[in-house]
Nucleic acid binder design. Structure first.
Lengths: 191, 191
DNA sequence: CTTGCATTTCAGAAATTTCTGAAATATCTA
DNA sequence: TAGATATTTCAGAAATTTCTGAAATGCAAG
């Protein structure tokens, strides 16, 4: 591996962490390298910098492409493919959230819904179904929320995150206001 | 594997999905089995139900224990260990969020902060550092938010999730109110 | 069409992870 | 303490994933 120390440390760490997620070391390293790079790199350069085989880089780039985490570019008078990392942090967050939902959540929800349609053949299965119902409801609530938040413009998203748990105060304020002004019908807060 | 069809389908799916996360098939299956079960199970029972070796179950249970996803119990007049899954959906969400932060985010932040302290030895490293700074900021914002929300009681959390992107309306309303009533000083909205 | 890169594919090698059976350890009971 | 039962450990086997080099494919220019 042929990299300045600071970049190398970053690349190596991302390689390790990559394994914790569903991506392998090389894929993590390629992404880290592109992310930290000040210019687009071609596959050959990545190969030399990381010290892995050309074919491995090719496969890694394809994987990153399916994750929509890299962009392909071309430089004038050079017919090689050049790559840059998707590097806007909020774009990364959105992309990762979407892709992971597609790969991990959606298939699970699909199985769960299917199982909830079935008629339980025993007490045991009936109990299991009740548990599955719980789980499904929670996942639906979470992903529904994520999908809505996903649609907010970056600015709003940041605003929301900065507010943190402060939103709750807003919720309270809203409830009180609604009661006082006789707004939309809702259950009266007990506290 | 010796399970009623509905439960088996659930267990098999979780086994597969487990691989996408950092846990292996058996660990995923054990958790799914316990989650769907209507009573605590001992290791021997799990072994027979899943058709894997006793030692594999032992290791799997230990792993689930480090994730704090199973609870150990004892039944009267039986000295075997019995296990139940952490099954309250919100408890699961909280536990997973915490453990993943501990295992994935914290080490990364630690590396990033360390790299940000270093003096860049070149233009290239300087640019890389700027990127790392972006990334660090975003991760800190996200995890800070998560930590705050984590502290809310379940009820509040659900309330928040149900509101979805509706919070933004509240934010707007608040901004307008604040301006009108001359509340806490803040920059006046331009739009 | 042919030549000269650039990239992809893919079979097998290498590395890593998972799983097992046997032995070791721990714990309760008599 | 010995014996019975429960659990853990761990070295090596099995399975899976990752990586490589060589060959195949693609594609623009001459």
């Amino acid at each position: 591996m042929d990299l300045p120390p600071l970049i190398q440390a970053f690349v190596l760490h991302f390689g390790e962490m990559g394994s914790r997620w569903g991506i392998n070391r090389t894929v993590g390293q390629i992404y880290a390298l592109l992310y930290a790079s000040d210019r687009p790199l071609n596959a050959e350069e990545i190969t030399h910098r990381l010290g892995v085989s050309r074919s491995n880089v090719s496969m890694g780039l394809r994987e990153l492409d399916t994750w929509r985490l890299v962009k392909l570019r071309h430089l004038p008078d050079d017919r090689r493919d050049y790559f840059t990392a998707l590097d806007d942090p909020w774009a990364i967050v959105r992309t990762l959230a979407e892709e992971r939902r597609k790969r991990e959540i959606d298939p699970t929800l699909s199985v769960l819904r299917d199982l909830l349609m079935q008629t339980p053949a025993s007490e045991e299965e009936q109990h299991a179904q009740a548990r599955l119902r719980d789980l499904t409801g929670t996942i639906e609530l979470l992903t529904g929320w994520a999908a809505e938040v996903q649609r907010l413009p970056d600015e709003r998203l940041v605003q929301l995150l900065k507010l943190g748990s402060g939103v709750v105060k807003l919720l309270d304020a809203k409830d009180r206001l609604t009661v006082v002004l006789g707004g939309k019908r809702r259950s009266t807060p007990k506290e």
